[in-house]
Simulated assay, not measured.
Amino acid sequence: MDFAFSAEQEELRRTVRAFLADTSPESEVRRLMETPEGFDRDLWRRMGGELGLQGLAVPEEYGGAGCGPVEVGAVLEETGRALLCAPYLSSTVLATTTLLRSADEEARKRLLPGLASGELVATLALTEDSARWDAAGVALTARQSDGSWRLTGHKTFVLDGAAADIVLTVARTADDGIGVFVVDGDAAGLTRETLPTMDPTRRQARLDYHEVPAERLRTHGDGWDLVAEVLDRAAVALAAEQVGVASRALDMAVEYAKVRHQFGRPIGSFQAVKHLLADVLLEVESARAAAHFALLAAEQDDPRLPAVASLAKAFCSDACLQATGQNIQVHGGIGFTWEHPAHLYLKRAKTSQLLFGDPAYHRELLAQRIGMDAVEGAV
């Protein structure tokens, strides 16, 4: 299996990098961090209209390019490098994947063209106060009355939840099953509050539902099967973004080690710094291999995808945190200042480590998925 991007995918990556260099420099990232929505709607539409980035994985019949997870992963590496303030992970990965993997053709026809063009922003609301990423963490209730559904409860840590036009909400039904429901962002009874978080470049929100009208998304079997599949694919996508974050942090550290002089020579000439950077390079390249393998598994609907997704998410989370932390170590005192961007990469790394489950959670999942827990229980 060839883990490398093809020539066309490399060209896509170069195009995205050049676009983000012009539209998402550090100054723009810092400006958007302070805005109410946390991203630029006009730029979001440009990304969809000019480059077609939001529609890469959307079939042509719904207004997309008909590509797949590998192309989306190439884009995510670059958005991670630039710390792009935009709902790409929430709308293009979480929401779009949920619709594509559902059994609801009507919802796909109605929503996917707007998501692909950038006219709409959507997200998936799953976690609650327990911060669990499994079915047991779903307490928000869905009640059917007179042929319509009403949702009551709350969700928290919802990516771009305050700005989304459409909120795909995971809820528990009266028969104790799990369903996914389409909710308009301005629906009656829905209140949204932006949460203060460690990472100011990626917004999260608390959503309160008070008898909110909703439309149930048709699924193949129980709704949790769909959510679990989406979470695996989202973990793979996030792993690709983490590679981009880690790669940029390594580049920053190497660049600084070349120009910062101490005792009359660049600090990069000292053996301790060389070893530190070599260790980070090994972690970053290993993470890139893990992420690319997982993207290919998602592309090919490989039955090993659940295990591979957990492996990639756990490894890339650790590698990203190490790279961004060591970047600050190499920079020394200046790396701790607000004016330097190093802390923004560390904050993205730390919050991404927890998103969709932390490394310990995914290592436990990996053990279950490859049968190691059964082997240990038999010993």
Rank of each mutant, 00 (worst) to 15 (best):
V180R: 14
V182K: 06
V180W: 12
A125L: 06
E215Y: 05
R203C: 05
F157G: 07
M198I: 11
A164E: 00
G189S: 08
A234T: 06
P196E: 10
P200F: 08
A142T: 12
A162L: 12
L217T: 01
A239I: 06
A214E: 10
L140R: 04
A239T: 00
V170P: 02
A162H: 02
L238M: 15
E128Y: 04
A187F: 07
L217G: 01
V138F: 09
V180K: 09
I166L: 03
D165P: 10
L195N: 05
T123P: 06
A163N: 01
S130Y: 08
V230M: 15
G161T: 13
L140G: 09
A135T: 00
T219W: 11
A234G: 12
D134N: 15
L115C: 11
G153A: 03
A164I: 00
R233E: 03
G161R: 08
V158R: 10
A163R: 14
W133C: 02
A237W: 11
G221E: 03
D225E: 11
V121D: 02
G223M: 14
E119H: 07
A188E: 13
A214R: 04
H220V: 07
A116D: 10
G223A: 06
A122F: 12
L124T: 02
V121Q: 14
R206I: 01
W149D: 05
L115V: 12
V243M: 02
L115F: 13
G189Y: 10
V121N: 07
H154Y: 15
I178L: 05
P213V: 03
D176C: 09
T219M: 03
A234C: 05
R143C: 00
V158S: 14
F157T: 10
R216D: 13
Q204V: 14
L238W: 01
L168W: 15
A131E: 12
D232N: 10
L151V: 13
V212S: 05
T156Q: 08
A164L: 02
L207T: 00
G118S: 04
W224Y: 07
V182E: 09
S145E: 15
R150S: 13
S117T: 14
L126K: 06
D175A: 13
A240F: 09
T197S: 04
K155T: 01
